[in-house]
Nucleic acid binder design. Structure first.
Lengths: 137, 137
DNA sequence: TATTGTTATACTCTATAACTATA
DNA sequence: TATAGTTATAGAGTATAACAATA
């Protein structure tokens, strides 16, 4: 069945890319979750709860995650003056620099895979992934 | 640049599918790593070191992982008579049943995404993922 | 001596429950 | 009362180093 072949391909690709991301993160003592958080924070300044939902984590898990990143000087917490219960999270300059380094390395690590496709196939792959996975539902 | 768009699409797809797998695993108290190990053991009976390499884990990490799965009755260890240092790992009948259940659920969970593509696009996506990621190098 | 696997240790990741502060 | 976040706790996941058994 075609759909089973596609499921297999998606699952295998997921583990393969996750392995690349895990390895690159580990070289800088970042877990896959921290790597992802850094990526999200590159262009957002969410509150704790928003970031937890985005990452699929409990808010208490995120407290610890952000604690550790804060102790390393990668992120900072900011109080929200409108609602003093809320804590905003954002990258420090050091965190921004690390995030750019790491995602640059991800691009380099995936380059060999990408270069196996000609430009037209790259566009096709982007469009197919988007159509399948990044649509509502 | 096209290749950056493809990197973004691959990374986002990876986190999205990993999220589906994590959720399905969590419903049965399986981590993403255990879910993957169950998938591998469906059609293999590796030794500990082989499985550790396959999963990208240290052998000591795998000892603990297999301990916990063994206590739950999902896998078993077998001594290898040719080389008595070696420990083979394999699914118990309960582990086989759980693995089939879980991967059936994965197929169902990804069905909506897959059904957004017509059969020709599904084939294209399988071929493009394979060409990019499942080739040597 | 080298290899296979386990154990001891330490730290991170994770969720649940209880808590504090604010609304 | 309800919401935002932290803390306490417990267990799983992970790697490094030291170890035992076998080759």
């Amino acid at each position: 069945m075609t759909s089973d072949a596609l499921v297999d391909a998606l699952v295998r690709s997921t583990f393969q890319v996750a392995g690349v991301l895990t390895r690159i993160g580990a070289e800088r003592d970042l877990s896959l979750t921290q790597l992802r958080a850094l990526g999200i924070l590159r262009d957002r300044r969410p509150r704790m709860t928003e970031l937890a939902v985005f990452l699929g984590l409990d808010k208490s898990t995120l407290s610890g995650l952000i604690d550790r990143a804060e102790h390393r000087g990668l992120v900072a917490r900011g109080r929200n003056p409108q609602d003093r219960r809320v804590v905003d999270v954002f990258l420090t300059p050091a965190g921004q620099e690390l995030a750019e380094q790491v995602y640059g390395e991800v691009r380099r690590a995936l380059a060999p895979a990408i270069n196996r496709l000609d430009p037209q196939d790259r566009d096709r792959l982007v469009r197919l992934l988007h159509a399948a996975l990044h649509s509502p539902g």
